[in-house]
Design a protein around this nucleic acid. Structure first.
Length: 1041
RNA sequence: GCAGGAAUGGCGAAAUGGUAAACGCACUCGAUUUAGAAUCGAGAAAUUGGGAGUUCGAAUCUCUCUUCCUGUACCA
């Protein structure tokens, strides 16, 4: 019987689907375990071999946990809202629903054929209305909430309103906008409804605000900070500019501290935690207020009371302040600038505004700034401090102003040097003539009044205390984390459940959700620049019927209220325009892990029932790419903490353990297209001396290396060209003659150095399928693919094949290095693909794919199969009789060391090493001619998580009628590994010289005696007397001397 | 600049203080075959990026330098 993997795999995939083998239950006596993959965006290109890497790892773990007796939830779904489907819709006019559905079909087929143990009954798709109904619902909950720093959690907005009614807002300690004016309880009750709503909006966890956003004109939408890479859009690489727009924002900054603290409670890699820590960017310091000194030369009237608030992490260096710098955008700049400096300052502001964010980022070295003519007063010395503006100070961080301490901060130092501002030194015994002293350690403060002689820690404490005493500062903590813009000017996203009454946003009642996407005839923004939803004709909310109605009705309603300027009377007929923006991609992905917990049947009543949430809690193991570190993974944590605060879920972290799988890279192949010719020394000379190869040809890389006589030649840009070529030409002329058909007289001229031979080469990517494992090109296939090369020459070394250069890079269509798992599954089977992906190397690492290597693991599966088919003509045969003591010992040893290693490996997510372990086990058992059921049966369970199809098939052949998937994991027994003796390595000064077989129960002294007495030891020592003998029983003997 | 990670044959890698290089690919030779593929057997090949230290003993721990990768960037 042959190992017919295609039939076997189909058979068991059908079996699993039919029997719902991997359906998880919400009621079970077993302990629960939740294994989750980051769900895919179903793109049109389908999967390549890099995509399933993480899925295979998580599947192995999920299957392992089932063997270990856990009730495993291992679901899968689709992040099906997103840009590519919409871009495709814009180009073709096809509705994204249609393309998304088609793409999902492809994904499902590809996933199914790899044999994943997903519970598909719990599938989610973020673009399904039954799903995004609950995304909209969560949005409404955020709108109805505010963050109370006193209770340190989100609360219903009603508790805030109660506080306003009772005592106004002065004692409210909330996460809110900066521009809050204080009011009393009386004032609050006197406000109009619109005014009240306006104020509440400044406190809500999602709020409308005019924000400076990253606008991408090419994509017609705003982008989040994490969607921009090097100043251009992550998708498509389009330029991004700053633009002010009214947008929904999420007050994630309220959670900055908890997002930071929470990292300590979860099992993520330090690398990933560091990325989030840096992104949150906590800095502890103080806020200090500087009074601006009134100046007659300032025309502006406000200057009398002007104060500049700064944030500093080094309040201990306050006596080192010799100037202040404001961001050019700082609101105070125009007020304090003296008439004399006005022209210069305005010119500078204009110049900075013109520079794009990208320019400012690229150019961090140029120092620029302008003096405003104004001075501030030092809070302690009362000395005047000049106020400058400079674009090294960012308007968006802190207060947009800094107290410059040039002796302690390199940027301040550079600025001071550049503009000849004094640099007072406040560090005892430190030389600051060359650069600033930015370290906090091992230094004492001097020239600083009451701070003299103190270290950083003490001085900081004292400085803050003194600032508080004079009312000009306090301790403060700043975060880099900004609120997240939540609006997108796109069609293919969740509609906001929001309509506008008198310009104020109103939530649609949750019982009328979902608010589904309207039909539009085109997916582009409108001519007026409104988002695509602006094209919908039926996109207004009728509060009478609670339904979406035609826009025409809004026009009528507005007409009716137009004359009423206060807009407070209810003369309209209750029909209002709906929000035109949609939600960003991260909305649906920030809570999907809860949706899986609920079975399809109960999903109408809640996003997940309380029972389901309580049972599954959160994700025990999450596997996905590290590129989501500051996007999905941060936003999910934020939403979960919010849902936790409001009592909707019982956990405040979504993912207990997280592993980032590395990327599988493609191995591209390049052929060099060359052209050889002889250039005349004189450009104008076009006489018969000139010669060239007939058109272009391709040159084999080994030939090229030989001709150029270098191991590795430098290839820059599109061509190379070797002058040194001529010098060594004689040696290699034979090769050249053979291939270039060069006339003898030309050869002579080159040898005599009358002419220079020039070779140009262009590298052309080749479809990797045409290249064999020895990097040789199938020339015929290549010619068929590239018809223009049909008549070109392919230069190779004599009797050699055409060789190519290979480079490792990301898989991409344009490089022709994409490997489709479908082909691998067809040629080698899913089990081989699964094993090979794991075998390539550690899960977290980036590693190149090389299809040739798969024969190794495929060969292993065949050997495994053979182990069970040792009967006549390869018939199935295993020996069910009990193992004899003597012949069984060896096999048991093999089995149990395999159990031990594989179990350890899976627990440590070291899947590559267990594949090696399987290979060793099968090689050993084959050599032992083992046919015992007692050995082979448990071996199958070990292999089953990795190669489930072959395991199921052999399991069935062993006579089992139930799937192997819940068979208990074999128990490791130490006794089978116990050895009587040990082949001790005998080292001399740490270097192993020979080995010696000694009983393991031999005592330390005896070992020493035996070893020293051995003739080989004497030979090594050559009469010397050992200074020391180290004996580690069971490990090693080391003789020093 | 800052933060994190990495460097072991031709390639992917194993070994986390105790015999360095397991396992696989590729390579060479042999058997089988009309040939190729497949299969089986045999073989050649790496002193752990450089330097120093700790230790009886270091790929592994410490310091330092070099190179590469990832993230982040005027964050006060």
């Amino acid at each position: 019987m042959k190992y017919n993997f295609n039939d076997i795999e189909k058979k068991w995939q059908d079996y699993w689907a039919k029997n719902e083998t991997f359906k998880a239950s919400n009621n079970s006596d077993k302990p629960k375990y939740y294994v989750l993959d980051m769900f895919p965006y179903p793109s049109g290109a389908g999967l390549h071999v890099g995509h399933p890497l993480g899925y295979i790892a998580s599947d192995i773990y999920a299957r392992y946990k089932r063997h270990k007796g856990f009730n495993v939830l291992h679901p899968q779904g689709y992040d099906s809202f997103g840009l590519p489907a919409e871009q495709y819709a814009i180009q073709t006019g096809q509705h994204p629903v249609v393309t998304t559905e088609a793409n999902i079909k492809t994904y499902r087929r590809q996933l199914d054929q790899i044999g994943f143990s997903f519970d598909w009954s719990r599938e989610v798709r973020t673009s399904n209305p039954e799903y995004y109904k609950w995304t909209q619902w969560i949005f409404i909950q955020l709108f109805e909430s505010w963050y109370n720093y006193d209770s340190n959690k989100a609360e219903n907005i009603d508790t805030l309103i109660k506080m306003f009614e009772a005592e106004g807002n002065t004692n409210v300690n909330a996460a809110c906008d900066d521009d809050i004016n204080p009011f009393t309880a009386e004032e609050w009750s006197a406000f109009s409804e619109t005014e009240k709503q306006n104020i509440l909006l400044k406190y809500r966890l999602t709020y409308l605000a005019e924000t400076e956003v990253n606008w991408c004109p090419a994509l017609g939408t705003v982008l989040a900070n994490d969607e921009i890479v090097n100043g251009v859009s992550e998708r498509g690489g389009h330029p991004v500019i700053r633009k002010k727009m009214t947008q929904w924002s999420m007050r994630i900054s309220a959670y900055a501290e908890r997002l930071l603290q929470g990292l300590d409670t979860i099992d993520w890699t330090d690398a990933l935690k560091d990325i989030q820590k840096n992104w949150i960017g906590k800095s502890v310091g103080a806020s200090v207020t500087f009074n601006v000194i009134p100046n007659d030369a300032v025309t502006s009237s406000a200057v009398e009371k002007s104060q500049i608030e700064v944030f500093t992490t080094r309040p201990d260096t306050i006596f080192g302040v010799s100037f202040m710098t404001l961001a050019p955008e700082h609101e105070l700049v125009t007020q304090i600038t003296t008439d004399e400096q006005k022209a210069e300052v305005e010119a500078y502001i204009e110049a900075t505004a013109k520079r794009s964010e990208r320019d400012r980022m690229a150019d961090v070295k140029t120092i620029s700034g302008v003096f405003t003519g104004a001075y501030a007063e030092h809070p302690f010395t009362k000395e005047p401090i000049p106020i400058w503006i400079g674009d090294y100070v960012l308007a968006s961080y802190g207060t947009g102003a800094v107290m410059a301490v040039p002796c302690g901060d390199q940027r301040d130092y550079d600025f001071a040097k550049h503009f000849n501002i004094p640099i007072p030194n406040i560090f005892e015994g430190v030389d600051i003539s060359e650069e600033a002293f930015a370290s906090k350690d091992n230094v004492k403060i001097t020239n600083s009044d009451f701070l003299n002689g103190m270290n950083y820690k003490k001085a900081t404490k004292r400085a803050i205390f003194e600032l508080e005493q004079i009312g000009q500062g306090e301790g403060k903590t700043n975060y880099r984390l900004r609120d997240a813009v939540f609006s997108r000017q796109r069609y293919w996203g969740e509609p906001f459940p929001v309509y506008y009454k008198d310009g104020m946003p109103q939530m649609i009642d949750e019982k009328h959700l979902p608010l589904t996407l309207p039909e539009v005839e085109k997916y582009l923004p409108t001519e007026e620049g409104e988002p695509p939803l602006g094209r919908a004709d039926v996109w207004a909310w009728d509060t009478n019927t609670n339904s979406v109605v035609s826009n025409d009705l809004v026009a009528e309603a507005l007409e009716a209220t137009k004359s009423d300027t206060s807009r407070t009377s209810v003369s309209d007929d209750g029909i209002y325009p709906l929000e035109l923006n949609t939600m960003p991609g991260w909305a649906g992905s920030s809570w999907y892990f809860f949706r899986y917990m609920e079975e399809q049947a109960n999903r109408d009543e809640a996003f997940a029932t309380e029972d389901a949430l309580k049972y599954w809690e959160n994700v025990d193991l999450y596997i996905g790419g590290s590129e989501h570190a500051t996007g999905h993974l941060l936003y999910s944590r934020f939403w979960v903490k919010f849902l936790y605060d409001r009592g909707f879920v019982g956990v405040d972290e979504p993912f207990k353990k997280l592993i980032n799988q590395g990327m599988i890279l493609g191995t591209s192949a390049y052929a060099y297209k060359i052209h050889c010719f002889i250039a005349a020394k004189n450009e104008e000379d076009t006489s018969e001396k000139r010669w060239s190869t007939e058109g272009e040809g391709f040159i084999s890389i080994d030939f090229l290396e030989k001709v150029l006589d270098v191991d590795k030649f430098v290839y820059n840009g599109n061509e190379f060209f070797s002058h040194g070529f001529v010098d060594n030409l004689e040696k290699r002329l034979s090769y050249l003659m053979e291939v270039l058909d060069m006339p003898e007289n030309i050869q002579e001229m080159i040898i005599k150095k009358e002419e220079t031979l020039i070779m140009t080469a262009v590298s052309v990517p080749v479809i990797v399928d045409y290249v064999n494992s020895s990097d040789e090109l199938d020339v015929q296939a290549f010619k068929n693919w590239r018809p223009e090369s049909k008549n070109m020459k392919f230069y190779t070394l004599p009797n050699k094949n055409f060789k190519l250069v290979r480079t490792v890079e990301k898989m991409s269509k344009s490089k022709y290095n994409v490997v489709n798992p479908d082909d691998i599954v067809e040629d080698y089977g899913a089990d081989s693909l699964r094993l090979y992906e794991m075998f390539l190397g550690p899960l977290e690492q980036y590693k190149p794919w090389n299809t040739a290597g798969i024969t190794g693991v495929h060969g292993f599966l065949k050997k495994l199969w053979k182990l069970f088919h040792t009967g006549e003509n390869g018939a199935f045969y295993v020996d069910s009789s009990p193992l004899g003591k003597s012949e069984g010992a060896e096999a048991l040893k093999t089995l149990h060391k395999t159990i031990k290693k594989v179990e350890e490996d899976i627990e440590n997510f070291s899947f590559n090493t267990s594949v090696s372990t399987f290979m060793i086990a099968v090689n050993e058992l084959t050599a032992q001619k083992c046919t015992s059921k007692e050995i082979l049966e448990p071996l199958l369970v070990l292999v089953s998580p990795y190669a489930p199809h072959i395991a199921e098939e052999l399991w069935e052949q062993l006579g089992h009628t139930e799937s192997i998937s819940t068979a208990p994991f074999p128990k490791f027994e130490e006794k089978h590994l116990v050895e009587r003796s040990k082949n001790y390595p005998i080292s001399f000064n740490g270097k192993m010289r020979f080995t010696l077989e000694l009983p393991l129960d031999m005592s330390k002294d005896e070992i020493e005696k035996t070893v020293l007495a051995h003739e080989k030891t004497q030979e090594q020592l050559q009469g010397r007397i050992p200074k020391k003998v180290i004996v580690v029983p069971g490990k090693i003997v080391n003789i020093v001397g």
